Simulated assay, not measured.
Amino acid sequence: MGRRDAARRLLLYSPDRKGEHPKAHLADFSGPGTHPIAEETLVRIGELYDIENAIRGAPPDRRKTIRQRAAGAPPRSCR
């Protein structure tokens, strides 16, 4: 059985609020900025997906060989 002194919280949904607080809170938000490391990571992930798309349906041993040749060793920063 749970603890009797555990914290409890009751949240009530109100359909008439129309998201006004979140809209006001996020009014000045323009999205996350870009960072060179993040951009490079996304490019590398995209390249891995391209490899996977190209080898889909091949036998497992063939996929492994192609992955290892095409992707190469992981960069030091990812180890």
Rank of each mutant, 00 (worst) to 15 (best):
H35I: 08
D16M: 13
L11K: 14
L42Q: 10
R8V: 10
P32G: 05
R3T: 05
I66D: 13
L26F: 14
A70N: 03
I66R: 06
K64D: 12
G2P: 11
G31V: 04
H25W: 14
T41F: 08
E52T: 03
A24C: 02
T41K: 13
A58H: 01
A24G: 05
S77R: 14
C78D: 15
A58Y: 07
E40W: 08
S14N: 13
K18M: 06
E47M: 08
R62Q: 15
P22G: 02
T41V: 11
E39P: 03
T41E: 12
D50Y: 00
I51A: 03
Y13T: 08
R4L: 07
P15E: 05
P60R: 09
A71R: 00
R17L: 12
D5L: 08
Y49E: 09
L42E: 15
K18F: 06
A24F: 05
G57L: 04
G72C: 13
E52A: 07
T34D: 08
P60F: 06
S30N: 11
S30D: 12
P59H: 14
P60G: 07
Y49A: 05
G33V: 06
G46I: 05
Y49C: 03
I45T: 07
R17Q: 12
H21F: 08
N53W: 04
R62Y: 03
D28Y: 01
L11S: 08
A6C: 11
R79D: 06
R4I: 10
E39C: 08
D61I: 01
P74S: 14
A70F: 02
P36G: 11
H35W: 07
P75H: 13
G33C: 06
A38Y: 01
P22M: 09
R63V: 09
P59N: 10
L12F: 06
C78S: 13
N53I: 02
K23N: 04
R69H: 05
R3H: 14
E40R: 14
E47N: 11
T34E: 13
H35Q: 14
T34S: 10
A27L: 15
R63H: 08
I66C: 04
P60E: 12
G72F: 02
T34V: 11
Y13C: 11
I45S: 09
A6T: 07
D5R: 15
I37F: 09
S30Y: 03
D28W: 01
I51R: 01
R17C: 04
R8N: 04
R69Y: 06
S14I: 01
S30W: 02
R56A: 13
E47P: 00
I55T: 04
T65S: 10
H35P: 00
I37K: 12
G33E: 15
R4P: 00
R63F: 00
G31Q: 09
R9Q: 06
L48I: 03
I51L: 03
H35K: 08
